[in-house]
Amino acid sequence: MKYLLLIHSNPENWGHPTFLRTAAARAMSSEQRAELSRQFETLMAEIVESGELVGGEALPDPAQTRTVRVRDGVPAVTDGPFVESKEQFAGYFLVDCESLERATEIAARFPDAGLGGAVEVRALMQHSGQEM
């Protein structure tokens, strides 16, 4: 099963990895911050090696976002993301893993999840189906 892991983070100024730029991480000692990076690298190495990581992308500063609505046939373009919230959508990872439980376990290991942000786990729809 494929799952999207959507990383929502709240860095003080935008940049990747976002978790190092959160208020909580900035208050840490440099050893603690290095440990966070190590944890993240270990997680990446593990899911690359297991063949679970399918792909992922990082997103630029949400200020660069445009939201487009078409009203009465006229596009209305506003600057900024569609959803207003403190936590911003910072990037995604696509994983192919055995179960929702495993995807959740991976999500919990993203440092952003522990630093005021959140990781959303969304299953992908499949084209396979069982007749009933």
Binding site: A123, M125, H127, S128, G129, Q130, M132
Partner: peptide
């Protein structure tokens, strides 16, 4: 369901 054809059905 996470299956598109099942959902449609």
């Amino acid at each position: 369901t996470t299956s598109l054809p099942e959902q449609r059905y």
